[in-house]
Nucleic acid binder design. Structure first.
Lengths: 173, 173
DNA sequence: CATTTTTGTTTGATGTCTAAAATTAAATCC
DNA sequence: GGATTTAATTTTAGACATCAAACAAAAATG
């Protein structure tokens, strides 16, 4: 993770009116897009590592497990493996192992669907729900601590831009 | 990867003047910070998966390898394993395997340092440099295609906000 | 100078991801 | 209604990540 490229491009002359002070040569001549991607990745990995480390320390678990529980927590009716796989945007194979571990730990139940014997219905267990509640509260505090230093305005701007970007990315795929 | 929490918080009454139309309840009552984190992660994983898939398809390689080559490409004097480990923000153990593979593929050279027989000096090989050049060009095109649909203004806003966020995150650590 | 301590790298155990092949159940098609 | 197709899940093989333990070489210490 880092995707550092940053090459000396800086050729396409801007047809836009020049900004007041300077065309912002920025720390490197690389394309804006490249610089955005590097920053985005840097932010995401920093946050991800911080959350992962804390989840491990305080709850002896991981983000992947937490995310799966989070999906089940908002679906009292349960979900199938494939549904979870889609929700988490992770391959089917990855779900199998995760679910086995979580079931062994008593966090979730896995029952064969009465209608379709191929599919499993995954549900949070009672213990799982309680433990997830504890984790979610801490998780939220951590995220707020990590991002909360930005002003409210900066935050909503950032969210808006990220939402826009995500929409474009989804269209691409 | 998804870190979906989104809980029913919405308690802290805003002491700010209400916006023109609505206080923007947004799609969910979750804290702004949480929503930002989810979007950020979603964008990063989408881009990362796209780049990884293409690197594999076109060059039979991965982002991790590409990133390592990128670091060496900008350091003709070479770098030690630990330096690379720091640059990529990845543990030492991860570098060992990566370097072995890249050396076996003839992309990099690894020579023991004359000064310090514990350390290795890693350098791009000629073939490695050429191959990296090809990959970097394509990589840049891909990133531009993925992000380039955003307007220039949106892009520089986004970059600015991400830069700010990254600074805060680094201070935290 | 012999003994720590620190530093650079490797190894091993574990966790997660992917892609592709295998398995099994359901649905569909003559 | 038996054969094919589709769908849900598992398995396998290959990456890459972590952490912690083990080493070996260099530096520091007394």
């Amino acid at each position: 993770m880092d995707a550092t490229v940053k090459r000396k491009v800086r050729s396409a002359k801007s047809a836009r009116p020049a900004p007041p002070v300077e065309p912002a040569p920025e720390s490197d001549g690389a394309h804006l897009e490249l610089r955005i991607w590097l920053r985005l990745l840097a932010c995401a990995t920093r946050i991800e590592k911080a959350l992962n480390a804390r989840l491990r320390k305080e709850f002896n678990t991981t983000l992947a497990r937490f995310d799966l529980l989070a999906q089940l927590a908002r679906r009292p009716e349960g979900a199938s493996m494939s549904e979870v796989s889609d929700l988490l945007m992770v391959s089917n194979g990855a779900i199998t192992a995760l679910v086995q571990k979580l079931e062994a730990d008593g966090m979730i139940h896995r029952e064969v669907d009465a209608e379709d014997r191929r599919t499993f219905r995954l549900r949070l267990s009672q213990d799982g729900a309680k433990e997830f509640g504890r984790m979610a509260r801490r998780h939220e505090e951590w995220v707020i601590a990590l991002i909360g230093e930005l002003s409210h305005v900066a935050q909503s701007d950032l969210l808006q831009h990220l939402t826009l970007l995500k929409r474009r990315l989804d269209k691409h795929a």
